[in-house]
């Protein structure tokens, strides 16, 4: 048992599974190896589906005690649990019982509960980022002024009123978005890519162990 507890075992598994993906990509090993590689990816996806059920368990571990012990806001926790089970049950893949993703009730709750809620929650951020910008975007320095100006130009460029009042703003907005914005994003992408490569190599060499932390 103590051998199984050793952290070297998961590190070895990580390295093996990473190399299965990396080596055949850079070295031509024939179609049979490539097919195995694809199969391993699909097999890993099946293994990783268990993680979502862990999410369900985590939520239950937080909200069930809240309901049973009648803690503050327990009524909302009950609602959360009810909707979680409702969506899970009506989404079970049994089309012969009118259940599943294409079933009537699943579509009903998806269209009338989940879609309005997710769209409204994402849209409400418009108010918060606007109010945050009002507080943060003050031209105290040249950098802040540039941030404010380019932000304002892009807002005006994308709002119909902006291009109606100042037609030239469309070209300027497009130029800012396609040239400086694209160039900055490209540099950040290269930097992020280099960082991801280094992280990958560190994991392959067994130096990066943060993801294995926890337990006794």
């Amino acid at each position: 048992m103590s051998l199984l507890r050793r952290v070297e075992i998961p590190i070895a598994i990580t390295i093996i599974f990473a190399l299965i993906q990396v080596i055949p990509y850079f070295v031509n090993m024939g179609p049979a190896v490539e097919a195995t590689q694809d199969k391993v990816v699909r097999w890993t996806l099946i293994v990783s589906t268990g993680a979502l059920l862990v999410g369900l368990t985590s939520l239950l571990l937080i909200h069930v005690p809240r309901v049973t012990r009648r803690r503050t806001h327990w009524e909302y926790s009950l609602l959360l649990i009810a909707f979680m089970f409702l969506m899970t049950i009506i989404g079970l893949p049994f089309p012969e019982l009118n259940l599943g993703l294409t079933g009537y009730w699943f579509s009903f709750f998806y269209n009338n509960v989940l879609t309005p809620l997710s769209a409204s929650l994402y849209a409400i951020l418009a108010f918060y980022i606007t109010s945050a910008a009002y507080r943060a975007f003050k031209a105290r320095s040249l950098e802040a002024a540039l941030l404010l100006i380019s932000g304002t130009i892009l807002v005006l460029r994308n709002a119909p009123l902006g291009t109606f009042l100042i037609p030239q703003i469309a070209d300027l907005g497009d130029w800012i978005f396609n040239i400086p914005n694209m160039a900055v994003n490209r540099a950040i992408m290269i930097g992020g890519g280099l960082g991801a490569m280094v992280l990958g190599i560190r994991v392959l060499l067994g130096y990066e162990r943060g993801y294995l932390r926890g337990g006794e």
């Binding site: 979502l52 909707f83 969506m87 899970t88 989404g91 993703l101 997710s118």
Partner: peptide, 18 residues
Amino acid sequence: EYVFIGAATGYGIAYDLD
């Protein structure tokens, strides 16, 4: 908020099982 979290988790699980 709570209905959204519950429904979104349920949707994820149903999608996963399917």
